[in-house]
């Protein structure tokens, strides 16, 4: 009996946690804040969106997974740009002291800037793009905000390469490109993946803010629209969706990270 219970612990324990959270939610909605939709009300209001997750009834009236899909595509694009720019930048910072001395201060200044501050600048930058402006602005914001963990972790990883590995490369007189492919990249990979994982988390955070401000269809855009429409139950639906998707993304990256673990 005891054995079975401990085997199911991974499922039961989190379930207990969720139940407690729902109970607190119910309590707050009944006793403290009447404006907060109760769990039951949230479900009845969100039913259509959850049960027909891919239906499209209008531009801002679509199934929740369809919205999620839009958001994910935008995140994927922005994230790809962030990695494409961030990884080489990280390598350069890790390899060259001069480069670090020149650019590290700028990076430290730009890094803490909030996505909410970047977005308007992104929109201004791409104002010439017309209809595309909001998408390009959002992409710019995602890329700029999500890049830093990749940049910094890659740089740390390159600096942390044991001198032994570099000595091997020198003794064997490997060419620069071969040293890069056979030694530098594999040695840095674990650090890079930690950066990639953190970057993805940030990209997902930024997308919601970007959609809210630009009103693009997506989870964040939907959330903001329902807030304006005074339909608070669906805000909670959006929050839960964002949370679960973020969790799933992080887990996926965790798996990828383990696959590429070297050393």
């Amino acid at each position: 009996m005891r054995n079975i219970r401990s085997k199911l612990d991974w499922l039961l324990m989190p379930l207990v946690g969720f139940m407690i959270a729902v109970a607190v939610w119910e309590f707050v909605s009944v006793a403290l804040c009447k404006e907060l939709p109760s769990p039951a009300k949230t479900w009845s209001e969100s039913r259509d969106y959850v049960l027909k997750p891919f239906e499209k009834r209008g531009e801002m009236d679509q199934g929740i997974l369809r919205f999620t899909w839009y958001s994910l595509i935008l995140v994927a694009k922005g994230y790809a740009i962030a990695l494409a720019v961030g990884t080489p930048l990280g390598f350069m910072l890790g390899l060259s002291k001069t480069f670090t001395k020149i650019f590290d201060p700028i990076i430290q200044v730009l890094r803490p800037v909030s996505p909410l501050a970047w977005l308007p600048l992104g929109l201004v930058l791409f104002v010439g793009a017309g209809k595309q402006a909001s998408e390009l602005g959002a992409l710019f914001t995602i890329a700029v905000c999500a890049m830093w963990p990749t940049v910094l972790n890659t740089a740390v990883g390159v600096r942390a390469i044991p001198q032994d590995y570099l000595n091997v490369a020198r003794v064997l007189k490997l060419s620069r490109s071969k040293t890069f492919v056979k030694v530098l990249i594999p040695a840095t990979l674990p650090y890079m993946f930690t950066g990639f994982r953190l970057s993805l988390g940030i990209a997902w955070l930024v997308i919601v803010a970007a959609e809210m401000l630009t009103g693009r269809p997506g989870v964040g855009g939907f959330l903001w629209q329902e807030y304006n429409a005074l339909n608070y139950a669906r805000i909670i639906l959006c929050i839960l969706t964002i949370g679960f998707v973020g969790f799933a993304l992080d887990r996926l990256m965790g798996c990828a990270e383990r696959c590429f673990k070297t050393a």
Partner: peptide, 28 residues
């Protein structure tokens, strides 16, 4: 400078952990 005309055996084996024994020797 360094070069493969001198075979060096280090104090610690200095193998690249992402290559097999075969791969490590093959690299040289």
């Amino acid at each position: 400078g360094a070069g493969p005309d001198r075979g060096v055996v280090f104090q610690s084996p200095c193998l690249l952990p992402w290559l097999t024994a075969f791969g490590n020797v093959m690299l040289g």
